[in-house]
């Protein structure tokens, strides 16, 4: 203890140097290190247990409350099913027609359906500044960095880091993430990032000033994205502003996914970045 007190300043400087060096070495790493994988083996099972225990208690607490609600919801849903079935048969017809026409035009429809893996969210970021979370599948289940993560409603985010038995997902409402997006109606392109000064929503930046984007437009991932397949739903435009520089516009976007109550996600286990590279190589030849 006495020795520590004598070397206080040296130790303080050492800690600072350690932090700076660690930050410089680990920023933007592609793979988690051995240390993190070891932590993963200890922490992930505990997190799984803790999350499922919390879910179980919540489930039991809501049991009686849910019965009334479920009854009304059930009758509503039955009505909806009838309507949807009618629509579906119409869709089926349109799909067939579409297939015929696309084959006539010789367009490739390789992005229309992709294989997915289901995963459960086991932990969220401990701080209040970020919107990352951890899912219970990793490279052992065939996942890789930069794979797209979806929920039933739309795009959730992408895998930032892939450990052996866990993956770190950065969501679309996190401001360290940015996606190339476009509006379906007008095909205007912009970058979608999270907005920290408006928590729980994102914004689309660098939209062309002449773009005819308006409130209520649907925003999806664009075909320029090197990570995401095109056409994944991100959200709806809430408001359009002109930037202070007067050269571009930005739009506030309400994401379709309810990030507060997200429990299960789907991961598209195909890496699209590779596809694009091989496409480019083919075009070059």
């Amino acid at each position: 203890m006495k020795r520590f007190n004598d070397n206080k300043k040296t130790l303080g400087v050492f800690v600072i140097i350690f932090c700076v060096a660690a930050a410089a070495l680990t920023v933007d790493r592609a793979k988690p290190t051995f240390i993190e994988n070891t932590f993963g083996f200890i922490i992930v099972p505990l997190q799984k247990f803790s999350t499922s225990a919390a879910d179980w208690f919540e489930d039991k607490a809501n049991y009686f409350k849910d019965i009334e609600r479920l009854k009304t919801e059930n009758s509503e849903l039955k009505e909806q099913i009838l309507l949807q079935n009618a629509k579906l048969s119409q869709m089926e017809y349109l799909k067939n027609e579409n297939n015929k026409l696309t084959s006539l035009l010789q367009m490739d429809n390789k992005y229309t359906d992709f294989s997915t893996v289901g995963a459960k969210i086991i932990a969220k970021d401990p701080g209040n500044w970020y919107n990352n979370f951890i899912i219970d599948k990793g490279s052992d289940d065939g996942l890789m960095q930069n794979m797209a993560v979806l929920s039933g409603e739309g795009l959730v985010g992408r895998i930032k880091e892939c450990g052996k038995n866990y993956s770190k997902v950065v969501s679309v409402i996190d401001d360290t993430n940015s996606i190339s997006g476009q509006s379906i109606r007008t095909e205007d392109i912009g970058y979608v990032t999270g907005d920290l000064s408006n928590m729980g929503s994102c914004k689309m930046e660098y939209i062309n000033l002449d773009a005819e984007i308006i409130e209520g437009d649907e925003i999806v991932t664009s075909n320029l994205s090197t990570i995401f397949p095109p056409g994944l739903k991100i959200g709806y435009v809430k408001k359009v502003h002109t930037d202070t520089n007067g050269l571009t516009k930005y739009a506030q976007i309400e994401p379709v996914v309810d990030f507060q109550h997200l429990e299960n996600v789907l991961v598209i286990n195909e890496n699209f970045s590779k596809d694009y590279e091989s496409d480019l190589a083919q075009q070059a030849q």
């Binding site: 660690a22 930050a23 070495l25 933007d28 790493r29 290190t33 932590f39």
Partner: peptide
């Protein structure tokens, strides 16, 4: 840091 942040240090 190692489990949640983007880099170790802060």
């Amino acid at each position: 840091d190692s489990f949640f942040s983007g880099y170790i240090g802060s």
